[in-house]
Amino acid sequence: MEQASYIISQVINGLQLGAVYALIALGYTMVYGILRLINFAHGDIFMLGAFFAYFLISRFGTPIYLVFFATMAMCALAGYLMEKIAYKPLRNAPKISLLITAVGVSLFLEYFCSLKAIFTPDYIGFPRPFEVSAWNISLGGIDFSFTNVQVIIFAITFFTLALLYLLVYRTKQGTAMRAVSHDQEAAALMGINIDHTVSLTFMVGAALAGVGGILYGIAYPQINVFMGIMPGIKSFIAAVLGGIGIIHGAVIGGLIVGVSEVVVSAFLSSTYRDGVIFVILLIVLLVKPSGLFGKRIDKV
């Protein structure tokens, strides 16, 4: 029974982390779907989100719901600029040139923000917008607890995903995104404005990562300019696990990666948590390179 409750609490913790990964993974998967680009700097947008929120809360005492909207808007702007300045000029260049550029953008954002004059290279505490409280539940003789932070994270993630779903499947812009992702040339022939659609995809992905950044700050209240690196890579792996380009795949992948990471930390050692992810990646690539929900395609 002890063991069972422990496992359940760890899984809940894993889902909490996984929810954040899912939010980041969505941006990776959408951008990859549309441009075939691994936007390496996407994890840094997540970092920017956490920092924007930090400043809004601690400097300006902005109410938390406004923090969400403002952060999403700022991250969307950052995503928009990133695409226009760094990636658009290379739209027709070889894939690797784009990836190297993305790595450059990522390093630039990290080290630029680490300057004392911008943010700081040190860890800083993320302000708690509310008091943490926990509930104890007993189900069928198994006790476990969860916190209001977790409830809020799940609620907001769920709400954001619902919005994304509406955008992608119920609006004209969403249809355009899916069309471009399916076949760019055909979409262009149908009169879809590719540039707008790409921009919108970057903005939506960045806004989601921004939400992830705030939630991460609330859940693990230490932030740092390099905080986006590992979650970024893990979320990308989550997107690959779910099947790159597939929206629900990114969500499920994120949850699986989050839970595996927490469970491995709890039962093996926290020092192996980063290693586990690579093992997951290897297994996916070996067993089903197209991911859990992807279809296999031959190419010549």
Binding site: R36, L37, I38, K95, I96, L98, L99, I233, F236, I237, V240, T271, Y272, D274, G275, I277, F278, V279, L281, L282, L285, L286, P289
Partner: peptide, 23 residues
């Protein structure tokens, strides 16, 4: 296993291996 991948995915896989070695 990883050289079956190409371009950007190979980049991520080698990056992942780098992290594993670092760990």
């Amino acid at each position: 296993p990883i050289l079956r991948l190409r371009d950007d995915f190979l980049g991520i896989a080698t990056l992942g291996f780098g992290i594993l070695v670092r760990v």
